[in-house]
């Protein structure tokens, strides 16, 4: 991965909420097709890091570039960049007043200016890919959590993003629905999608990640292959965290 230019590059990123220092000198580069899983205790800054990459959270210092382009401050340029960075949220955040199909076509029609017909065709293909083709005409509230999250993934994919960000995509799901979402994510990873995934699902990390980052107190304390990290964590913090999450 190192011989290719990074798709996402963070350099010396710092972020404060008031006096709380939530990201401390974070430097990270994610290559094309790479799947990076971020784990760490609650409050360690995982969501903030994830959200800073499409500037849902502005940062205080450092630089973030996507595909070589530094994040624009505001306005049209930022919107254009966000169109290339897909995001999947913990609470799905489907548009409650639109059908599943319309949720998926909204971005392509309004942002990419795709003709509706074409957008719908593509949306149906994507809904089929995530296994909910039969739900296209329903309102989000009428779907199970797992189906809603898969619709949200289809909505993000419809923009043909360069990279997909996931912030705890399965944390709001009942256990029996977690796997249907993880399966979709695993298959995306296999197909070469660049992904940055905040998750507590260690099985997914082992299976799909190229690299695991361990965060604590706003810092990236460890970064390595899943095998290195899970079998031989370097820091006490990581060992402690792993012993807690793996033994419950």
């Amino acid at each position: 991965m190192t011989d290719r230019p990074p798709l996402v590059a963070l350099d010396g990123v710092n972020k404060y909420f008031g006096s709380l220092h939530v990201l401390r000198d974070v430097t990270l580069s994610v290559g094309r097709g790479e799947v990076v899983v971020i784990i760490g205790p609650s409050g360690s800054g995982k969501s903030t890091l994830c959200r800073s990459i499409n500037r849902l959270e502005p940062i205080d210092s450092g630089t973030i570039a996507v595909d070589g382009v530094p994040l624009p401050a505001e306005g049209r340029a930022l919107a254009a960049l966000r169109a290339d960075v897909g995001m999947v949220f913990q609470s799905f955040n489907l548009f409650a007043h639109k059908t599943i199909l319309d949720n998926v076509t909204l971005g392509p029609v309004k942002v990419r200016k795709l003709p509706r017909r074409e957008a719908e065709q593509r949306a149906r293909t994507l809904l089929d890919r995530v296994g909910i083709a039969d739900q296209a005409g329903k309102m989000p509230a009428h779907l199970s959590g797992g189906q809603q999250q898969r619709a949200a993934i289809a909505r993000a994919l419809a923009m043909e993003p360069k990279v997909l960000l996931f912030d705890e995509p399965t944390s709001a799901l009942d256990p029996e629905m977690i796997n249907e979402v993880l399966d979709v994510m695993t298959s995306l990873a296999r197909d070469g999608m660049t992904m940055i995934v905040v998750t507590h699902e260690m099985g997914f990390a082992r299976r799909a990640a190229d690299r695991v980052l361990f965060m604590d107190g706003g810092r990236v304390l460890e970064a390595g292959s899943p095998q290195e990290f899970f079998d031989n964590p370097q820091t006490d913090r990581a060992r402690d965290f792993l012993s807690r999450v793996l033994h419950h």
Binding site: L56, A79, F89, N93, L94, F95, G107, V111
Partner: peptide
């Protein structure tokens, strides 16, 4: 939902 719309690039 507002964040999701912004994230789509609207």
């Amino acid at each position: 939902e507002i964040e999701a719309a912004r994230a789509l690039g609207l």
